[in-house]
Computed example of a mutant assay.
Amino acid sequence: MALLKKYRFAVFSLAVLMTLFFFDTPQGITALQVTAFSVKEMLMIVPPIFILLGLLDVWVPRETMVRFMGTGSGVKGVLLAFFLGSAAAGPLYGAFPIAAVLMKKGTSYRNILIFLGAWSTTKIPLLLFEMTSMGVPFMLARLLVNIPGILFIAWLVDFLISDDERQRLYLNAEHLAR
């Protein structure tokens, strides 16, 4: 029963897919093809991310991460968080396991938020696509809005979150990163 409760969303989605397949077979086949494509794509992205996470966890000592991205890292930590997030490839769901390992290694909460913001909005492949399809002025205008926005949101959330909540998040991240 606990297993069913844990995977209730997947079971519900499967039931909806089967119902759709029963009532509208062509639409059900299309939905099944889209689902299979998404699962295949995810299986091609997630294993390399977890391999890199394992290497990061083993090769980078906690003291090094605290020095470069911890609470006292200042501008150096912010720039490194931006660089790591911008240089990343893959969908946003790949950033969250990395963020959990960074939290386990002692990265400040603000730098975690900057990393996630950079991953979602300033990735280098995205910038290259924008530059070629929409032009340099658009790309630069978006960056000039997004970068201060990421910094402001990271600062605001870091300021508003209580120490108890921050501690709970770090404990959850450490539990998940095992």
Rank of each mutant, 00 (worst) to 15 (best):
Thr19Ile: 13
Tyr109Gly: 06
Leu80Thr: 03
Thr30Lys: 15
Asp57Cys: 04
Leu144Cys: 15
Trp119Ile: 01
Met42Gly: 07
Tyr170Ser: 01
Leu53Ile: 14
Asp158Thr: 15
Leu128Phe: 15
Met44Lys: 12
Thr35Leu: 08
Met44His: 12
Tyr109Leu: 13
His175Asn: 08
Phe21Pro: 07
Pro148Glu: 03
Leu151Lys: 07
Ala15Ser: 13
Thr30Phe: 13
Gly77Cys: 06
Leu113Thr: 01
Ser120Glu: 10
Phe129Met: 12
Asp164Phe: 08
Val46Trp: 12
Gln167Cys: 06
Pro47Gln: 02
Phe37Gly: 08
Thr132Tyr: 13
Ala88His: 00
Leu113Pro: 03
Ala36Thr: 10
Phe159Trp: 12
Ala118Thr: 08
Ile49Leu: 01
Leu17Ile: 02
Ile98Met: 12
Pro26Thr: 11
Phe129Ala: 08
Glu63Thr: 11
Ala88Asp: 03
Arg67Gly: 02
Val101Cys: 00
Phe138Ile: 07
Met134Ile: 04
Met42His: 01
Leu52Trp: 05
Phe68Asp: 08
Ile112Trp: 01
Glu174Thr: 05
Gly72Pro: 10
Leu144Gln: 15
Ile114Phe: 00
Met44Ser: 14
Thr25His: 13
Ile45Gln: 06
Gln27Lys: 11
Asp163Trp: 12
Gly77Thr: 03
Ser38Ala: 15
Gly54Thr: 11
Leu102Met: 15
Leu144Ile: 13
Ala10Asn: 11
Met42Lys: 04
Leu52Phe: 03
Ile114Glu: 04
Val46Cys: 12
Thr30Trp: 07
Leu14Ala: 14
Phe68Ala: 07
Ala154Leu: 00
Asp164Ala: 15
Met131Glu: 15
Leu144Val: 01
Gly74His: 09
Pro61Asp: 15
Leu113Lys: 00
Pro97Val: 03
Leu160Gly: 09
Phe159His: 14
Met44Asp: 12
Phe23Pro: 05
Val39Arg: 03
Lys76Asp: 06
Gln33Tyr: 11
Leu3Val: 09
Leu55Ile: 14
Leu144Pro: 05
Ala118Asn: 01
Thr71His: 10
Leu151Arg: 09
Pro125Phe: 11
Lys40Phe: 12
Asp24Cys: 09
Met1Lys: 06
Leu53Cys: 12
Leu143Arg: 07
Leu52Lys: 05
Met139Val: 03
Val11Ile: 13
Arg8Ser: 15
Leu32Asn: 08
Ile153Met: 14
Ala177Ile: 02
Leu52Tyr: 05
Lys105His: 11
Ile161Phe: 11
Leu140Asp: 11
Arg8Thr: 08
